[in-house]
Design a binder for these strands. Structure first.
Lengths: 338, 338
DNA sequence: AGTTAGCACTCAAACCAAAAGAGTGCTAAC
DNA sequence: GTTAGCACTCTTTTGGTTTGAGTGCTAACT
């Protein structure tokens, strides 16, 4: 357990480092946080904090730099949370309550506002697995093809084409549609994946059109697989505003990481309530990065996460406040719209 | 008009500069391109080429660097075109003839292969304006909403939702569909934009459901507007492989430029046959960038462009060969599939 | 025992001057 | 017209010195 003074000093180091990105000296801490102590006293404390693993020195005559462990305790215990100003909150509300037509558009808007306010790349993940199928439509396109439309409870559609077999009448298409609906309505999209195709049943009812049905189910399977998690990232270029990416190789590494959708999804995927902060290699190979995220309930069966990603040295006070606020507004907006 | 020797020297400068990204000296040219001349002779020629605007020196004791004008003449007259190896061509063919289900997937594949082979960000633009409407479907979703589907001749669909008015029966939806088809089938998507809505006609046939029709047409208008040009960019991070973007501010500037879709579309949009090269500020505010592009015919009424964007100092011999080859393969693949 | 003034010490960064090296332009001879 | 030769320029490298920030330690003080 840290003494109050150690906490104060550690907090000052992290605050200072977040603001100015250079090592923090004992003198600086004295001036900003502990005017009643001498720099020598602070040096002793710093030395102690260093041997506890919270700080390190780039070289002997430099100030102290917080370690990953320091950021962790800073986020969890030390920092005081920022409250967004009313103007800012109102601006966000206004932006997010604007009439939108689709989930995609909403995602777009959320990501945009997150990224703009935090000056960091924004991540918005939507989990479609939990979508419940409302109905399946087979639409005759009059050119030997049919359009397969899946309607789900969160207005998301998965559509694709399928060639109709020869001698397949409009009526047969209708019964095929009814058949599919009977089986799948009320189920989750993800149920397609584990669905064993009942060849015999089809044979019985539709003669030899097994291949056609198989194709439809395969299409749906593929769709559900590729769309089960949808991640959008917006504002990647914002990282260039931060000094840790002045070297373009660092920037490249960061951008490459962000492009690994599965990795980012893993990071965003966690059940924890409220806004959480993941720092550096606690969770993955995100060297030098942190993620601030919050879950959002998009409906009874749909969930998602929103968040931002950036250097470990980010302004957590502000970023956590923003992510938290936006997720709350989002929950509010969505639930009041239904 | 340049003498043969001047051409040879200029070509050597550009080749060398493309390869090594540093100023080229007279001695170097002597060794690589003109072993029969002395370096002094070459120096005289270089001096002449400089005063003609093809070259410049970073400082007095440095070699020569080609100007934008030099790159222009290099691409147009000096360089010898590379022929892709058969293995490489086969690889591309194999990759592009792989079974795909949608235009989007094809675009994805083309962009991917372009970007991987050239080590540059790839641009693929598809012009939907020329799509001809094959049919319009209004699909009752049983929850007070209808799905609007537009089928066009290039298999592209534009779909969106519209709320049904109260007391709107299934039969009325059917007649509404017939009515829309009568008006719009055979026309271009872009025709929606200029379409004046005939309130009286609707009133006559459908009573007071003007609002409903207006909403449908508005939706279609918006869709056709936002989707009229579709640009996808893939492999933006490839620019980090090039020294001109070692400074991350340069990289940022580049990435910001590439994100300006309209600007890139303008660049890609030109009728010229074959593969064309646009260099730096000839065409726009693309500071330090070049675009190599080629038009692709995707069908009778659909056109698109593929290309790459990168630093002016790019390997034109190879890049032009690749873009040219891929566009030809693409034309072949598409036309043989129909 | 905790705090602090004082001081020696370390090390990065800034500065400066000299040397090396690359490449040119010019001149005079071929 | 071509070229050898040379003086000249300017960047890059090298190495040494200075500066300054910041520490750790010690000894004195509360």
């Amino acid at each position: 357990m840290l003494s109050e003074r150690k906490k104060k000093i550690l907090c000052a180091v992290v605050d200072g480092y977040i603001e100015r990105a250079n090592p923090i000296s004992s003198k600086e801490i004295m001036q900003t946080a502990l005017p009643d102590c001498s720099s020598a006293t602070i040096r002793n404390e710093l030395s102690a904090l260093e041997s506890m693993g919270y700080l390190h020195q780039p070289h002997v005559s430099a100030g102290r730099v917080p370690s990953q462990k320091a950021f962790r305790i800073y986020v969890d215990e030390l920092m005081n949370y920022e409250r967004l100003s009313d103007e800012e909150t109102n601006l966000i509300v206004k932006y997010l309550t604007h009439q939108v037509d689709s989930v995609e558009e909403m995602v777009e808007r959320v990501a945009k506002v997150l990224s703009e306010i935090t000056h960091l790349p924004a991540l918005v993940m939507k989990e479609d697995n939990l979508d419940i199928i409302t109905s399946i439509k087979l639409l005759d396109l009059d050119n030997g093809k049919a359009l397969v439309v899946i309607v789900t409870d969160c207005r998301i559609l998965k559509d694709s084409f399928v060639d109709l077999p020869e001698h397949f009448t409009s009526n047969m298409l209708k019964s095929a549609q009814d058949w599919l609906n009977k089986i799948f309505v009320g189920k989750h999209i993800s149920d397609f994946l584990n669905y064993d195709f009942p060849f015999e049943l089809v044979n019985e009812q539709f003669g030899d059109f097994n291949k056609f049905f198989k194709r439809i189910v395969d299409t749906l399977k593929r769709e559900s697989l590729t769309h089960s998690l949808h991640l959008s990232t917006v504002g990647e270029n914002k990282i260039f505003e931060h000094v840790e990416y002045k070297d373009s190789q660092k920037a490249k590494q960061f951008l490459d990481t962000v492009e690994q959708k599965e990795l980012i999804c893993d990071l965003l995927f966690c059940d924890q309530e409220g806004t959480t902060v993941k720092i550096d290699k606690e969770d993955s190979v995100l060297e030098g990065c942190s993620v601030v995220k919050s879950n959002v309930v998009l409906g009874e069966n749909i969930s998602g996460s929103i968040g931002v990603i950036g250097p470990v040295r980010m302004n957590y006070r502000r970023v956590v406040a923003v992510v938290d606020k936006i997720s709350k507004i989002l929950n509010y907006v969505i639930n009041n719209k239904r």
